[in-house]
């Protein structure tokens, strides 16, 4: 049944000056990297990644970037929203694996949930989080509380952490670990899995680094979608024709390297190509 159910907002929390989390007391249940279609009745409906899911309640962390999200920010506890889902292929939760997360902007949401789900899996996490400036950083404190996670911060303007791109931290981690590539399966230490979510040009740089250093990687690919359940065809990528709502949003390195449009263009509501 892909029909919205109406839920009341149980709480609203402020994550940073630009991001609010809307909480719902509802058992989805979801896997990290999945999304829901969020319906603001009478206004619009959009895919939103799930930033928190305790099993008993879930939270959507939202930037006010467009007309719908701006109207969402005016809502109060007890107001009603519609939810369908959860949808999509998630990130892998693996035991005894060394995770490197690379989060840009709101990409920290699903990767924050993924980090929490690694509890008890003997999988340490390097959590690289980047933003344009300090006030846009998301979930730095949330991840710092997790004992098996190490946070690495970067900002473009140098207002906190490394000055530059978050991918520069990734390259340093990969090159420190493996001074002369390629290694991959022959290495005797824990196998690395890089997981990334954020702006596409950042993700493309992550993909290229993972290909260069021959490490596994999972990438959350965002494409415009109408339905979320593999029917409208809006989120199919060239040249494979596979929909990112169901085969994605999380895809592996091999698939990402076959998607020729990745990092080059996406399609708008009409289906026209728009270059990055």
């Amino acid at each position: 049944m892909d029909n919205p159910i109406i839920l009341k907002i149980s709480a609203i929390t402020q994550e940073n000056p630009h991001v609010k989390t809307f909480w719902f007391d509802y058992e989805l249940p979801s896997k990290p990297g999945q999304f829901v279609m969020l319906w603001l009745p009478g206004v619009d409906q959009k895919p939103i990644s799930i930033a928190y899911d305790t099993g008993e309640c879930f939270g959507l962390s939202i930037f006010a970037v467009g007309p719908m999200t701006q109207q969402l920010f005016a809502l109060k506890r007890g107001d009603k929203l519609g939810i369908t889902g959860p949808y999509g292929n998630p990130f892998s939760v693996r035991e005894n694996t060394r995770y490197i997360m690379v989060a840009g902007g709101y990409g920290a949401g699903p990767l924050g949930l993924l980090t929490e789900r690694l509890a008890g899996k003997q999988s340490p996490v390097d959590f690289c989080v980047g933003a344009r400036s300090r006030d846009l950083l998301l979930f730095e404190e949330r991840i710092e509380k997790i004992p098996y996670a190490t946070v690495h911060v970067s900002t473009n303007d140098g207002s906190k952490g490394h000055k530059g791109y978050v991918t520069e931290i990734l390259e340093k981690l990969l090159s420190d670990k493996y001074p002369s590539p390629p290694f991959g399966d022959t290495d005797t230490t824990q196998k690395i899995l890089v997981c990334t979510c954020g702006p596409e040009m950042m993700e493309k740089a992550v993909l290229n680094l993972c290909t260069k250093y021959n490490v596994d990687c999972q990438i959350s690919v965002e494409r415009y979608m109408k339905c979320g359940f593999n029917i409208c065809g809006q989120c199919c990528v060239d040249p494979l024709g596979i929909p990112m709502c169901s085969v994605g949003p999380v895809i592996d390195r091999e698939t990402a390297n076959k998607i020729t449009e990745f990092g080059l263009y996406h399609r708008d509501k009409a289906g026209r190509k728009v270059e990055y």
Binding site: M1, N3, W39, Q45, K226, C227, F229, Q234, K269, G271
Partner: peptide, 28 residues
Amino acid sequence: EPRTGHANPTMIASDTHMLNAVGLSNPG
């Protein structure tokens, strides 16, 4: 001409039927 179609929700589905009003979105 290109069309963006209607705002969402444009598609819902149940065990017996789908219901859509995409609004003829297309790139032209």
